[in-house]
Simulated assay, not measured.
Amino acid sequence: MNPEIFEHRFGNGHCVRYRRLPSGTCYHAETPVPVIELLEQLRQSRRKIRLFYGDPATGQSWHEEHDVIGCIGRSTGSIKVPLLIEPGEIGGPALLDHCIIRIDTPRKVLYQHAAFRVGEVTLVKGALQRLPWEVWIDDVVHARFQSKAEAQQYRDFIQGHRFARR
Rank of each mutant, 00 (worst) to 15 (best):
V121D: 06
A29G: 09
G13A: 05
G59D: 01
E40G: 05
R17G: 00
D97F: 03
Y18S: 01
L95D: 01
P56Y: 07
F52C: 06
R102V: 04
E120Y: 00
E86Y: 04
L39E: 02
C99T: 11
G92S: 08
A114C: 06
K48P: 02
L42R: 05
W62P: 01
A115Q: 14
D97T: 03
G91P: 00
Y111D: 03
R50E: 09
L38D: 03
E86T: 11
D55A: 04
E86C: 05
H63G: 00
E120N: 12
C26M: 02
H14R: 14
Q44H: 11
I90K: 15
R107I: 00
E86K: 14
Q60F: 10
A57N: 09
E64C: 14
A114V: 12
L83M: 11
L21Q: 15
S78I: 08
H98K: 15
G59S: 04
V81I: 14
V109H: 00
F10D: 12
L39N: 00
C15W: 00
E30K: 14
I103T: 03
E30P: 02
V68N: 10
E120S: 10
T58I: 04
G91R: 12
L51F: 08
S78A: 02
E86H: 13
A57Q: 15
L95V: 08
G70R: 01
E37Y: 09
V81W: 05
Y53N: 01
E30A: 14
I49P: 02
P22H: 07
L96I: 08
E65R: 10
I85R: 02
I85H: 03
K48F: 08
I85W: 04
G73K: 08
